[in-house]
Amino acid sequence: MLVHSRGARWAVWAVFLVLFVPLFALPLLVVLGASFATHWSGVLPSGPNTANYRAATRGEALQALTTSLLTATTASLLALTVGTWAALAGAALKKRYRRLMDALFVLPVAVPSVVVGLSVLVAFSKPPMLLNGTRWIVILAHTVLVTAFAHQSVSAAITRLDPAYEQAAASLGARPARVLLRVRLPLLLPSLTAAAGLCFALSMGELSATMMLYPPDWTPLPVLIYAATDRGALFTGSAVAVVLMAATLLVLFAVSRVRTRASYR
């Protein structure tokens, strides 16, 4: 405890609230409030109704939701596979090679997403790999972007893993493949699910690369939200944004349930 006097503590908390609430809580509340309203010119939103949600859960919005869910699921599963594979293979390498591999796989974090979008667009707009105009170019870009995060969190988990487990398994006669499947992967499961959740959330909210790439028949939620706000339909946009947040949170929650089960089994 850093501050001992009661009064001072209350003062500190008051400052904290004054900073924290408007900056972090308010934006989310505003979006939530606006999603139920038609006008907002006073302090509080007005014209309460649920029409925004009716619009946000049917037609193109519903389709965008499916698009986003499919894209995020596919991208995060692919990213998790590649990232985990890379992290496991990297962990077995000598330090010099491992460093190189780490550096390669974090590079997509440093490169602006817009540039990733541009590069994918440049590379896959011509044969032999003509993906432009298909959903696969969006999924591909998302996978590239989130693989870095999957790799990072899984390789961090691998370094934290006590080598005593795999050595115990080996001394009991388990071959490397069996050690991987029966000991290392189950022990990594909590981190794998966490990585999957992270990838999913990132992909759900991805806008920068998507804006460069999306074909008309594969419009994810963020693009739809942008389109709505761009034409001035802020309230509908908010409702779609709330749907986006809710879907993300729901999946994250489900994933964290799996994780708790995995770590307390």
Binding site: P27, L28, L202, G205, L207, L234, A241, T248, L249, L252
Partner: peptide, 12 residues
Amino acid sequence: SFPSFLITLALL
């Protein structure tokens, strides 16, 4: 885990 543009949306 939320996308950044939500903040701008709120600020709008």
